[in-house]
């Protein structure tokens, strides 16, 4: 191996700044997409647990469409194909007027994709709450909304905290796909450092460490949340 290691490249200007900007962009895209995914996913998950066949068909179609098409393809479709299918004025606005179209497209695409996965988990969480709970809620005079808000969802969310953790971890890793439509997130920045300096190993090692730190932080946070909200005697974790 004849590779000239130079770890100093990581703290040299402008490369350190690039790494910082990359981390900021990765966090911004992932967190924004995470908010979309959690709110939309919860909503779809609730409707998916309903007894109405029509409702289940609509939410099921959404889930199947967004969960089964590769994210890479979805990003590409949102960015390049959707503006061509819209009326000309709207398409031109998306392509020319919208500020930072690549970042907004990436957030929307990642958010909608992850929402389909969270919807399945939320629906499964609701289904895992014993049926007697729902019946008891209705019998004690709660409306459907109240039954969901006060009885079903608080229990369902506690059940699905562990799979949700994986989903949040996946958002941060999936955000790297945004580089295919030109978002300068962490992976794109490390490739940029490799392209400018050819010190690819150092840059990719730095990215690996950053992704690990993000993942461990998310895991720790979610574990704390899981402990805090656990109902004594009912914890999913033994």
């Amino acid at each position: 191996m004849n590779y000239a290691w130079n770890w100093g490249v990581l703290v040299q200007p402008p490369y350190l700044e690039w790494l910082g900007q990359g981390i900021a962009m990765t966090l911004a895209v992932s967190i924004a997409a995470g908010i979309i995914a959690l709110s939309l996913g919860t909503l779809i998950g609730i409707f998916h647990s309903s007894t109405s066949g029509a409702m289940r068909l609509v939410t099921g179609s959404y889930i199947n469409l967004f969960r089964n098409v590769p994210l890479l393809l979805q990003m590409f479709l949102w960015f390049f194909v959707v503006p061509e299918l819209l009326p000309k004025a709207a398409g031109t606005w998306l392509k020319r007027e919208l500020p930072n179209p690549e970042i907004i497209t990436a957030i929307v695409a990642l958010g909608l994709f992850t929402a389909s996965r969270i919807a399945v988990q939320v629906a499964a969480g609701i289904a895992a709450v014993p049926g007697g709970q729902s019946m008891a809620a209705r019998a004690s005079g709660l409306s459907t909304v109240q039954a969901y808000r006060l009885v079903l969802l608080p229990q369902a969310f506690r059940i699905v905290v562990p799979p949700l953790t994986s989903e949040f971890l996946t958002i941060f890793k999936n955000s790297s796909i945004a580089l295919t439509i030109g978002v300068y997130e962490l992976t794109a920045r490390t490739q940029q450092i490799q392209s400018f300096t050819y010190q690819g190993f150092e840059a990719f090692t730095a990215a690996t460490v950053v992704y690990m730190v993000i993942a461990l932080t998310v895991t720790t946070l979610m574990t704390v949340i899981e402990r805090r909200v656990a109902i004594p005697g009912q914890s999913a974790r033994v």
Binding site: M1, N2, Y3, N6, F196, T197, Y198, Q199, G200
Partner: peptide
């Protein structure tokens, strides 16, 4: 670059632009 550096490739024959930064490595 890694393949040239670790000796898997003796010479890479394609379309690489010569820059001072890259000369630190190959």
């Amino acid at each position: 670059i890694p393949l040239v550096a670790n000796g898997t490739v003796d010479i890479s024959c394609e379309s690489a632009v010569n820059t001072i930064g890259r000369q630190a490595q190959v």
